[in-house]
Structure formats: C-alpha cells, structure tokens
Nucleic acid binder design. Sequence first.
DNA 1: ACTTTTACCTAACGACCGGTAGGTAGATAA
DNA 2: TTATCTACCTACCGGTCGTTAGGTAAAAGT
Lengths: 188, 188
Amino acid sequence: MSPKTALGKWEILLKAYTLFRKQGYHAASLSDLAECCGIRKASLYHYFKHGKQQIMEEVLKYVINYTRERLINSASDESRSPHQRLHRITEKMQKFYQFQTGGCLMGNILLETAQSNKAFHPYFEEYFQAWEDAFFLILQHQYDEIKARKKARRYVREFQGAIMMMQVTKNAKPLEEFSENILEELDE
Amino acid sequence: MSPKTALGKWEILLKAYTLFRKQGYHAASLSDLAECCGIRKASLYHYFKHGKQQIMEEVLKYVINYTRERLINSASDESRSPHQRLHRITEKMQKFYQFQTGGCLMGNILLETAQSNKAFHPYFEEYFQAWEDAFFLILQHQYDEIKARKKARRYVREFQGAIMMMQVTKNAKPLEEFSENILEELDE
DNA sequence: ACTTTTACCTAACGACCGGTAGGTAGATAA
DNA sequence: TTATCTACCTACCGGTCGTTAGGTAAAAGT
C-alpha cells in the first residue's frame, strides 16, 4: 500500500500538534510543517485535501481523544476514592503540561481564532465540557448536583488560567498551586 | 501643527486595540488597521516608525494603564470595606468585559506570542502582577500574607480562565460565576 | 504481466504580508 | 514672504502565504 519510506498521516498530525501549540494557528505555516516533517509543502495535500483548516481540525479531534483517554479517564475509576481520583488526575496534568512547551493547544487556538473561525468552535465546546464532566464525576459524591457542577466549572476556569499563567511565570508553579489547592479543598 | 483632519496617534491606538483583541497579533494586518482608521498603510509609519511590533507594544502599555486606572484602582480605596472593594472591582470587570468582543487582549496576545516574541513578555508580567497585587490589597486584611498571596494568585487564574470560557459559552456567565464565587468566599 | 493506487515531487499561481522611498498639500514658524 | 514641518499620499519592494496542476517512481492489487 505504501512506498518504503511512507510518513503516514499520524506523524504529520503529531508534528502539526506541536507546531500549532507553540506557534499558534496563523503563525504556523504549512512550509514550517512540511519542513519539520521532512517533506514538501504540496505533499501535505495528499493527506489533507482541504488544507490548513482540515489539519487544524484533525489536530483538535486528536487532542480531544488524547485528553479523554489519557488525562481524564481516571475520573471514572470507581475502584478509587474521590480524593484518590482527583490526586491521580492532577498528577497526570502536571506531568503532561510540564513538558508541553507553549501550554494547552486548545486554550491557545481558542483565544486566537474564536472571533474569526466558527468551524473550530464545536471542538472547543466538546473539549472543555469533557474536563467539566470529569471534575463533576469526582465531585458529585461529596456535593449536591448544583454545587458539584459549579465547582467543576470553577476547576476548569482555574485549570486553564493556571496553564495561561505558566506562560507568564515560565515555570510550572501555577499548575502546582492549582493542584494543591483543589486537593486541600476536597479534604475540608 | 496638524492639517485639518489630523487623526492623531491616540485614535489609531484605540482602533489597533480593538483589532488586535478581536483578530490576534498575526491575523490583524496593517492594511486592516489602516482601512478601519481611514488612512493608507504607509501612513501608519508616520506615528509608529518601528511598525507593527511597536503598535502592539504601545497597545499593551495602554491596556496596562487603563486597567490600573479604571479597573483595579478601587482595590486601594481605604474608605471602603474589603467586601465593598471586591464587589466594586467585580462589578467593573463585568461591565468592561461584557462588551469587549474577543475577551482580554492581554490573555489573547500572551497565548499567541509567548513562544515566539520575547519583546512582549515584560508587559504581560506587569499586567498580571497588577491584578494579583490588586486582589492582594483587598485580601491582606482578612488573611495572613502567605494565604492572601495564594488566594490572589488563584483569583487571577480563575479570572483569566473565566474570560477564556466566555469565548466558549458565548455569554458572560463564567465571569458572573467567578464574581459570585469570590464574593461568597470572602463572607465565610 | 499489467493496471491502479499511494506517496510523494517540481513548479507555479495570485494574494497578501510588513516595510520603504519619495512626493505633496496645507498648516505653522521665522 | 519664505522656509519648515506635519500628516498624510502613491507606488512599489522582496518575501511568504495557502493552494493547485500535473508529473513520477515504487508498491500493491489482479
């Protein structure tokens, strides 16, 4: 099916993820992407017939899946206590975002394109809803429905704010402080 | 000094503020800016000899000053109680960001350029520090120094997260919920 | 063996980017 | 009155953008 050195859609998507996360949607060019994939710009259209926007959309889908399967999943681990689950999830977040130069792709692209590209909007909704649901799953055992929802939304706000502040402080302290903070709170 | 219809640096800066806030740094072009100022692109260089980056920097300075003077200032009003001050500040935030299509310029440009343009970084540091200091001023009377600082940093995270979430929900609820939340908390 | 498909390539397109050179009409200063 | 300065202008630069057309060699299917 493929010639010897076939690169595959997957590897391009991974490179695109990193590039878009660091550079943003507009500043990351298809030439840049092609170069760091070791192919020519026009070849990108073999895998992505609809160009840059399609690549971005597929990266957004990938991030949603990855987040669900690798970051958020421990929220529904019924064999552990709420505190254990929250601890596990903050641990994963810290490990993940510690090395993601440029922070959270979803937050970055959201703020860059929200006013100009409505095509991306459904992905943002799904992503942040997934985080809210994850926190809600943990909190619903300790609080009533309304209070748990409210707290979950607050966690999402603070989580994204923390990743934003990491771009200012240039270290992981904002996310650490967020983690400590919500773990303490659950003990009260 | 000026010909009849002189436009002035100030009006250009205001238009640039709105354009950069809505479109972002890279997507907002100098042609766009010139057009919505009613002048030609090259004329922008009369006021801003160093081009786009200088315009952005002066917008960042303007936002810092505006924020200090119009939004944050009530934090140091010694004639009011901490609760009154916090109420006043959240009120102003809501009135301001309700109509700022595209959210917070500082947050938007921070996430878009943090990895590629170090020239803007000092402005981001100053801006977010100003917010933290404002919250700290209010909180220092109720809590010890360390706890007040921690809480102030948390408010900044949640505040920025709330404005980000406004881009997802397309309404002002995240910021409202944040305001309710910190006001309740101060009463405890 | 022959055909089709895959995974690339080279070359070029028009549009637009930020930025520069140099001019000009009108207001101001001497 | 004359000289200077201000606030624009037209015209253009090289470069890069996303995108398209059309080719090619090798692998896969029949």
